[in-house]
Design a binder for these strands. Structure first.
Length: 354
DNA sequence: AAACCGGGGTG
DNA sequence: CACCCAGGTTT
């Protein structure tokens, strides 16, 4: 019963302080008993994997404007969706997003399953996302544990075990607090608390609805929790990208293999990336120029220093790699960030060559 | 169990 | 610049 009262305290806070987000139903609609659109909940949760709310907002708005239903998304061409996802990162999410949409249409008549167990079978939906959708969209009392919830639980119970080893313990603690009443709002409330009050640094304990029961607050250890096991340093890799501009304005680009880094995305042909620039040939014979400078980019587990070569090529050019994309269909915004940085570097060089 | 996947924000 | 944040899939 004590736990139920704690959840109720948080829900009272949430009723006043819930963050407004495009994928959430407003307070008035919620009061009228409206449930969130499962398609919106799914799309936002996939976008929010490893990604901040600020970054997701505009992508979510664009996606739902372009594809109002999961059926619309399922019917779209892969390249179109990958292009709209460009810049959001972790591109396997976009490939799984499309797979999932098509399974929902083909196997579930265009309607999302409403249980954690069934959601878990869909591509791109793991333990966290399955629980989040079941809870938020269908108000089921699932235990939803993301990085915010881990931090809140570690502090609430003053857990000093470092992550990721502490994960099972923190999940068990979260389970004891999940209420039968309004579990969907409760799940969002804990995550909002972690995002706005119980922040990684400088937590605002003074205005926290859970300051009374918080063990770390009492012990003065809140700012240093959760503990984490140190991670390995990132190595630096180098490479060269070739940007060929044909007389008619077409650019030489390649679609990267589905597997691996930047899978399924557009990119410039070039060397591989390694500690030293790997031996390689340009994608075609041309008067390649080095404009100088490097595109600097950091991936999940390495830093990249990418230099560029630029050339203007004639209409008959026959590339060994990639294909020319007409100027009318090439949108720099379709490129992942590292490729857009290379483009920005080369663009100045082409202006100088005129 | 460990490795593989981006990008943006902050100090 | 260094550091911080954050799930799913694959091997």
């Amino acid at each position: 019963m004590r736990e139920t009262a704690q959840a109720a305290d948080l829900l009272s806070w949430y009723d006043v302080h819930a963050r407004q987000m495009p994928w959430r139903t407003g307070p008035a609609e919620r009061a009228a008993g409206a449930r969130p659109n499962p398609y919106h909940v799914w799309l936002s949760e996939v976008m929010l994997q490893q990604t901040t709310v600020a970054a997701v907002r505009e992508y979510f708005t664009r996606f739902t404007a372009l594809w109002p239903t999961v059926g619309d998304l399922a019917a779209e061409e892969d390249a179109r969706v990958m292009g709209e996802w460009a810049g959001l990162g972790y591109y396997a999410r976009a490939r799984n997003l499309l797979k999932c949409a098509r399974v929902v249409v083909s196997d579930h008549d265009g309607t999302f399953p409403d249980t954690r167990e069934a959601l878990l079978k869909l591509p791109g939906i793991g333990p966290y996302t399955a629980a989040a959708i079941a809870s938020i969209a269908f108000d089921r009392p699932e235990v939803v544990v993301d990085g915010n919830v881990e931090r809140v639980m570690a502090r609430l119970h003053d857990v000093h075990t470092p992550l990721p080893a502490a994960k099972p313990e923190l999940t068990a603690l979260a389970a004891t607090l999940t209420p039968e009443d309004r579990p969907g709002d409760y799940a969002q409330a804990v995550m909002d608390l972690g995002a706005t009050i119980c922040t990684p640094r400088n937590p605002a304990c003074g205005i926290c609805p859970w300051r009374a029961p918080c063990a770390a607050r009492a012990a003065g250890t809140a700012p240093e929790l959760p503990k984490k096991t140190p991670k390995k340093p990132k190595p630096t890799r180098q490479g060269v990208a070739y940007l060929a501009l044909r007389e008619d304005g077409a650019w030489l680009l390649e679609t990267r293999p589905d597997k691996g880094l930047l899978g399924g995305m557009l990119g410039w042909p070039g060397s591989g990336w390694a500690e030293e620039v790997p031996p390689h040939e340009p994608p075609l014979e041309a008067d390649w120029r080095d404009p100088g400078g490097e595109a600097l980019h950091t991936f999940t587990h390495f830093h990249l220093r990418l230099s560029v070569r630029v050339a203007r090529v004639p209409m008959g050019a026959n590339p060994r790699a990639g294909a020319f994309l007409p100027a009318a269909t090439f949108r720099p915004s379709d490129l992942p960030t590292v490729m857009r940085k290379a483009f920005d570097l080369a663009r100045g060089a082409f202006v100088d060559m005129e």
